[in-house]
Design a binder for these strands. Sequence first.
DNA 1: CGGCTCATTGAGTCGAGTCAACACCCGTGG
DNA 2: CCACGGGTGTTGACTCGACTCAATGAGCCG
Lengths: 252, 252
Amino acid sequence: MGTNHLQLVSDTKGRPVMAQHRTSCNECSLSPVCLPLAVSVDELDELEDIMRRGRPLKRGEHLFRASDPFESVFAVRSGAVKTYALSEEGEEQVTGFYLPGEIVGMDGISTAHHMSSAKTLETSSVCEIPFTRLEELSSKIPSLQHHFFSLMSREIQADRELHMLLSKKSADDRIASLLLSISARQQRRGLSAHRIRLPMSRYDIGNYLGLAVETVSRIFTRFQQQGMLAVEGREIEILDRESLCGNGRLRA
Amino acid sequence: MGTNHLQLVSDTKGRPVMAQHRTSCNECSLSPVCLPLAVSVDELDELEDIMRRGRPLKRGEHLFRASDPFESVFAVRSGAVKTYALSEEGEEQVTGFYLPGEIVGMDGISTAHHMSSAKTLETSSVCEIPFTRLEELSSKIPSLQHHFFSLMSREIQADRELHMLLSKKSADDRIASLLLSISARQQRRGLSAHRIRLPMSRYDIGNYLGLAVETVSRIFTRFQQQGMLAVEGREIEILDRESLCGNGRLRA
DNA sequence: CGGCTCATTGAGTCGAGTCAACACCCGTGG
DNA sequence: CCACGGGTGTTGACTCGACTCAATGAGCCG
């Protein structure tokens, strides 16, 4: 529970330190925000048994591809992952960004095939969790079942937020909202809330938010001119949180 | 399984016939597309035990409101339901439309409170399913657990589709896509695929798709001029499915 | 018959997209 | 060491799709 040695895993640069794939959930700094939070100490072993920790993945490697058979979900340990789908014409649609402690791949349960692809945005390590094993375990551990329902529910909620963002909000608000979201998620892991490092390109941001790259770029520049941000490539400092929120009356 | 007495429940006008709230899942024409499809005959009784069938709801009544404690999910039996959230400024965002056989209210699991409100678009009847009871039952019936994971996964997938629609597609494509979606969902229930009746207003459509009402209206008019649709208020006939899809290379 | 809400149509505006050029960083290889 | 090339990011000029504002029509209920 009360683990206080956060930051064992180097993170700012996404470099994997030592042989992470031998680390157990117990020792993982993310356990308070990841799956283990739903299980008691003695149940944790069972969960550990079914998880597979792979080698660190290099930037651009795939966790899975659309139409791969659906077998597992993945917990991000370090680095960052994006999911995307290809439309009929082959253009990419980025559907989500996943940071450490978050679970990727929960679409695909219904179809037995993944409906999107997932690739790393930088060097990352992930834990693979075979889904049928997880289902079996969930039947035995009600809190785990509930936690998993809860995770999926949260995913749906996030999508609804995004829906509102895309259908009602200006380009400015979309960018502001994404920054605030990433800031909040970093903070949850014990990192700075006002200094953030974006793991994704401007292209990915634009694609995700339904904006042209040029628009994204222009907005970053303008936010900086207005003194709301200090932008240095993918390193962002939030200087005026008020304005960033108030801009479009976004939360927190 | 092979129930062939569809249409026991009047549907085209959404009028509840007789005292539906006494109907069991067995007799319900929707069982092949609703929760019961996941359970065997002898387990069905257990599922029935926990469900509550309420009186028919009049147009505009709420199934639940945002910030209500989360206790149940709801299966739509007849009629139609929309979910929506209010932004900080109090403007409405329609987040989804639910037709007979579909499950409403799966956001809210994670927060113990609903994050959106659900109201009927026309006279409707719904089955209430207390969620903690459903969780208990799911632990005992693996296929039910799986089915529920599957339902939530499908919800996520649908949201991803919508994400693509909103961030990449033109107003025309959005409308076309909504019509095709409703058509497909009607067909799944054994109704006509080319004659559809929209249970929602132009306002709701625009709100859902991120378009102004005027735009929605203009597009219906134009689609009709182009011979793709016959529009008569909320009654729509799809005359040229090809064009409707091909228009924006949408599926089906 | 008013008084609604819902839907349609027209005229004018603007936010964000497109096209195009250029700057920057970084790794590779001569 | 520097030249080169590709990926990534920034900036400017122009265009256009969808929004806003405004007016009118159609159906429904009391």
